[in-house]
Computed example of a mutant assay.
Amino acid sequence: MKPTLRRALCALCACAAALCAMPQTHAAGAGEKVPIGLAAPLSGISALFGQSFSIAAQVAVDQANQAGLTIGGRRVTLELVTADDRGDARSSALAAQYLIRRNVIGVVGHGITAASMAAAPLYSEAGVPMITGSSSSKELTEQGYRTVFRTIGHDDAAAAQAAHYMWTTLKARRVITVDDGSAFGVRLARQFAQAFGAAGGVVTARRTVNDKTSDFNDLLYVLKAQQADAVFFGGSVRQAAELMRGMRRTGVNSRLMTGSNGAADRQFLDITGPAGEGALSIEPGVPAERMPGWKQFAEAYARRGDTPMSTFSPFVYDATQALIAAMKLADSTDPARVTQALHKLRLPGLTGRIAFDEHGDLLDPSYTIYEVRQMRWTAQRPAEPAK
């Protein structure tokens, strides 16, 4: 090899070594990328539901990045890493394992309680916090994992407030409970019955229907025979709407209240039509127009995509905001320190104050009673806890 060529190659090798030794950045001025996980049903029958979560979480990430983040003296850029849990236990475990391998600092999700409960032990073992904005069963936080949080009230509290409203506002004294046989529906109806009985009311019958049926003829016969003041239903939105339509068709004049999260939406009215008039639903949070920053959130959401916003989108947004705020409070991207900060967090969120008890539940969740009036869900008033 000629001396001149040898010298040139040596110079090139020295430059390459120097470049390899230089700190690597993902983009000029962008800073170190910090992954945040989002687990939700992004495919299948609940895809729209999950996609709305993804958009809401991305809005929070976008806002944080635009404002600029410095953690531990380093400029960081947040990156949302999504995983499809398909809304079932097996897929949620796979989604959780994927996000853990991606070294996320925390996870927003999962969408439904069954998925969250399957994933929770995996996150706990890995020391990664998870914050759900939609899994409302009390059983989730009763598992005892310190890494589990939620920005939505749990079903036991919703049932108690529904019973309080029935007794004090509707003046109902005789009520029938109906559930769809699911863990969610059974527990919700049971907790309602306990709270209503404690207030002095009488539950004249308790009925369970198959969660796939739309044939309520046997149940409607019982409802018509008893003509209770009200019926409380724990189950899906679709079945709540079918039941309401059947009640009016067969002359059952009892008031129907559903604890189906998300019932106060178009799907219920599309099924019932005019028969939905007078139906009641208890929903988490306050009406959108009373949320501080609602207009800005709605506009940012619309810019991100055309997937309809779900009832839970604001709670998912707040879950993402809480995770980011905890990271800032801890001044660290270490999941263990972020988890510790979440237990101390006090954040004025879109849906209300975000602060958790020792179980990871909200300290003061809010609910609103809605009623169908002239084919529109109308907020009646914030639900009040039983005294």
Rank of each mutant, 00 (worst) to 15 (best):
L329M: 15
G352W: 02
T333Y: 06
T333N: 12
I354W: 04
A336F: 12
A325M: 06
S332V: 09
I354V: 15
V338L: 15
G352C: 12
I354L: 10
Q321T: 07
A325Q: 08
L350I: 02
D331H: 10
P335T: 05
M327R: 02
L347N: 02
L345T: 01
D334E: 15
A326L: 05
K328H: 12
A322Y: 00
L342P: 01
D331P: 08
T351W: 09
L347M: 08
K328E: 11
K344A: 12
P335Q: 13
A322W: 02
H343D: 04
T333V: 14
I324K: 06
A341V: 00
P348F: 12
V338Q: 12
R353F: 09
M327V: 03
I324E: 08
L342G: 01
L350P: 00
R337D: 14
P348S: 13
Q321R: 12
Q321V: 03
L345P: 00
D331S: 14
R353N: 15
H343R: 04
A326I: 01
A330D: 14
A326E: 01
L329Y: 08
D334F: 08
T333F: 07
D334Q: 13
L329N: 10
I354R: 00
L347D: 02
A355Q: 10
P335L: 10
A341E: 03
L342V: 00
R346Y: 05
S332F: 10
T339M: 06
A341S: 09
Q321L: 12
A336D: 15
G352E: 10
A322E: 03
R353C: 08
R337W: 11
G349W: 04
D331Q: 14
A325G: 10
R346C: 05
T351C: 13
A322P: 03
D331E: 15
L329V: 06
K344T: 11
R353E: 14
D331Y: 07
P348W: 09
L345V: 01
T339Q: 06
A355K: 03
L345K: 00
M327G: 06
A325P: 06
R337I: 02
L350Y: 05
Q321F: 06
L323G: 02
I324C: 12
A325V: 03
A330C: 15
R337S: 15
T333M: 11
R353D: 15
T351K: 07
D334H: 08
L323I: 04
A326M: 05
L342S: 00
T333G: 11
K328M: 11
D334N: 15
D334P: 11
Q340D: 14
G349S: 12
A355W: 02
R337L: 15
A355P: 01
S332R: 09
L350A: 04
V338G: 13
G352A: 10
I354A: 10
Q321K: 07
R337F: 11
A355S: 14
H343G: 05
M327H: 05
Q340F: 03
R346T: 09
T351L: 10
L323N: 04
L323M: 11
L329R: 11
A330E: 14
H343I: 01
I354P: 05
L323V: 01
M327S: 07
R346D: 13
A326C: 07
A355G: 10
S332E: 14
T339Y: 03
R346K: 07
V338I: 15
T333P: 07
D331F: 10
T339C: 09
P335F: 06
T339L: 04
